[in-house]
């Protein structure tokens, strides 16, 4: 993590974005009830957004004065190495696809495919172990949540109709 005063690639952009969003949120908070009354619903959000803006500007100032040491790399090379290596990006994409398709393919199928693919992406080469661990853990989660906690996990609009009743 961030430990020194040296700037990480993308940190300045992140802080500028934070300040820009804080400004927008201050404006949105002001629009809730403007200066109608000192105890109106918009006052607390305005105070929060203003605090966000002020502390964001303070951090931006610090970040802008810190030096970015590229260590002989280009900006994007260092960004990819320190913040977004290929494995991390691929894994994040898999998480996004998993979340978005959870209702469509259902918990069991979606989670199983996600587990197998992500274990592969992250470098677990023992395919037999991956297949077994994924199946056992999924079965345990399914049983505990469906029975003990009464959480109805999505059966999936695409796959659900073809699943046996006990797996829905």
């Amino acid at each position: 993590m961030h430990t020194s005063h040296a700037r990480l690639p993308g940190e300045l952009t992140f802080m500028i974005l934070s300040v820009a969003i804080s400004t927008f949120m201050l404006w949105a908070s002001y629009n809730i009830s403007q200066f109608e009354s000192i105890s109106s619903p918009g006052v607390f959000p305005m105070v929060c957004a203003a605090t966000l803006l002020v502390t964001g500007l303070m951090s931006l100032k610090k970040t802008a004065t810190a030096k970015l040491n590229l260590e002989g790399e280009t900006f994007w090379q260092q960004f990819a190495r320190k913040l977004a290596p290929a494995q991390l990006v691929l894994f994040t994409v898999l998480i996004v696809v998993y979340a978005l398709t959870l209702e469509l393919v259902g918990f069991l199928v979606g989670s199983y495919v996600f587990l197998l693919l992500s274990m592969q992406v992250l470098g677990s080469k023992r395919i037999g172990l991956n297949v077994l661990v994924s199946a056992v853990v999924l079965a345990a989660i399914f049983v505990v949540f469906q029975t003990a906690f009464s959480v109805v996990l999505p059966a999936g609009s695409l796959v659900g109709p073809y699943l046996p009743e006990m797996l829905k």
């Binding site: 894994f91 998480i95 998993y98 979340a99 959870l102 918990f107 989670s111 996600f114 587990l115 992500s118 274990m119 992250l122 470098g123 677990s124 172990l129 991956n130 661990v133 853990v137 999924l138 989660i141 949540f145 906690f149 959480v151 996990l153 999505p154």
Partner: peptide, 21 residues
């Protein structure tokens, strides 16, 4: 102690179930 390539996706699925619940 489970290797991270196996453990991390499992924690993610557990987190997703927790959020869904």
């Amino acid at each position: 102690e489970t290797p991270k390539p196996v453990l991390l996706p499992l924690i993610l699925v557990l987190s997703a179930v927790g959020a869904y619940a």
